[in-house]
Structures are given as C-alpha cells and as structure tokens.
C-alpha cells in the first residue's frame, strides 16, 4: 500500500495542471512515435535530434521579443527543417545538419544573452516541464497531433517506400528530395509539440527511443508503428508519474525509460536469435 501511495500521490490525476500534462504528454508521445517510426527507418536520428534543438533558438527569441513561445518553436523548427533539406547533398547530410543546428544555436545563445536574465522559462524549455502546461497549450498540441496524423496517413506509403528503397521509389515517381523535405517538416511538427513538454535537449528521445525499440518487436511496418506508439505512450506515462513523484525534470525520465525499452528490444532480438540457432528449424 505504501508503495502505491508513494507512486500515485494525491493530485497526480486530479490536479488541473497534471490533467493538462497527461493530455499533452500523451498527444506528444503518439505524435513523436509516429514520426519516430520514419526517423528510425531512414536512419535520421541526427535530424530528429537537430530540429527540436534548433527550435530552442526560436523559443529564446520569443522570450527576447515577448512573443509566443510555441510560435517561436514552430518557426525555427520549420526553418531548420527547410535548411537541412535544401543544403544537404546526398553524401554529406550529417555536416549540413550539424551546421544548420549550429547556426540556430548560435542565434539562440545570442538571444539568451540579449534577453538578459536567464529566465526559468528557458530552463523549462531545455529540460522540459509539466507544471507550466496550460489548457491553451494542450489544445495547440492536440491540433498539431491531428495535423500529424493526417499527414502521416496521407504520406504513409510513398514515405515508407522512399525510406526503405529510395532508388526504386524514385524510379517509380516518388521523388527522394520531396520526401526528404516532407519528412523533415513532419519532424519539425513533432518538435514543436514535444519541446514545451519534454524539453529541447531530450525531445528526440521520444522520437528515436520507442521507434528503435519497436523495430525489434514488430515485424511488419504497421505492427512496428503500433508498437512504437504503445511504447511511446507508456514511456511518457511512466515519466510523468516519476516526475510528479520526485519533482525532477520529465526529460530525464523520458530518456531513461525509452532507453530501457530499447534495451529490452535488443535483448528480445538476441534471445530470439539464440532460440532460432538452437531450435529444431536450424537443423
């Protein structure tokens, strides 16, 4: 009983800010896992890492000019997505991703300095916060989720094809460049929703972790996608509970829990391989 009470203290589900956190967190987890599935398929962790991080500069800029944080995040994540898509050549995407990220963060550090005092708001954006999510934020995030669901449903087949067999897809009229740009814009969408909740430092954990783990459990694309969403939602729920219990930032728990799921995935794949190699079919 003591443990249950420690894990689920009063207010976890009933206080109004926690209700906002549950709603926003769940929406962000679904959204991130959805886009993360394609991130993992394409081996695009760096872009998934860079776009939310770059969007931080937008938030810092918003703090400086007194604008809306979410709008700042959206503008900078979209700009960095376009920057990565348009600068990259096929050979050196890593370089251009790094440099676009640096350009954004350079501006971010300037905005922070010019903005004067290091606002707690900025720390919240770096590390994530669950206390400050307003009802308006929740609606905005749900709106972004809706957009992402629509876009993913529409793009599912060509994006899948272009991700697993780009040469064939290109030959059949699915432009690799166009898909890359659309994919990065999806990442920007996920980043805009995730940064206010999970923080700019660790938003990509929620994209890469669940999808990477799901790749070990699921065998078909749709299975993997569904498992990724499930793992993502479980991860954020665990993280919200722990963050509420301990008062520590939610980003840390998201990183830890998704890494544990990924470890389980690798373990599962390893056990499966052992079983197959000593099983009867092997002979």
């Amino acid at each position: 009983m003591g443990i249950v009470q420690a894990l689920f203290p009063p207010g976890l589900f009933t206080s109004s800010f926690m209700q906002n956190a549950w709603l926003a967190g769940t929406a962000v987890a679904v959204l991130s896992a959805l886009i993360g599935f394609f991130v993992v398929l394409r081996g695009a962790s760096f872009a998934a890492h860079a776009v939310p991080r770059a969007s931080f500069a937008g938030a810092a800029g918003a703090v400086l000019v007194g604008g809306d944080t979410l709008l700042g995040l959206a503008i900078f994540s979209a700009l960095s997505a376009f920057g990565i898509a348009s600068l990259a050549s096929r050979r050196d995407q890593g370089q251009t991703t790094a440099l676009v990220l640096m350009a954004a963060l350079g501006l971010g550090s300037l905005f922070l300095t010019l903005g004067g005092a290091y606002a707690p708001e900025v720390y919240a954006l770096l590390f994530g916060q669950i206390v400050g999510i307003s009802r308006v934020d929740v609606y905005a995030i749900l709106g972004l989720l809706f957009l992402a669901l629509l876009a993913t449903a529409l793009l599912y087949r060509p994006l899948l094809w272009s991700s697993v067999a780009p040469d064939v897809a290109e030959a059949k009229g699915v432009s690799r460049r166009r898909m890359e740009t659309l994919f990065l814009l999806l990442v920007a969408l996920a980043a805009t929703a995730a940064v206010p909740v999970v923080g700019a430092l660790l938003s990509f954990s929620l994209m890469v972790g669940p999808a990477a783990a799901a790749a070990y459990f699921g065998r078909s694309p749709l299975q993997a996608l569904a498992i990724a969403v499930l793992i993502g939602v479980l991860s954020i729920w665990f993280s919200l509970i722990f963050a509420y219990d301990t008062g520590l930032p939610v980003g840390f728990f998201v990183a830890a829990v998704t890494a544990i799921f990924y470890g389980l995935g690798r373990l599962w794949a390893w056990l499966w391989q052992i079983e197959r190699s000593i099983g009867p079919e092997a002979a």
């Binding site: 998934a48 660790l202 890469v208 520590l248 990183a255």
Partner: peptide, 17 residues
C-alpha cells in the same frame, strides 16, 4: 545512427538531470 541516438539520449538524459 540509431545506436548513436540512443546512447546520446540516455547520457544526455542523465546530464539534463
């Protein structure tokens, strides 16, 4: 790429803490 992402995620998570 994915492995780098996961190692980064976990260690950065501890760093953030």
């Amino acid at each position: 790429d994915v492995a780098t992402g996961i190692v980064l995620s976990l260690l950065l998570g501890i760093g953030a803490l």
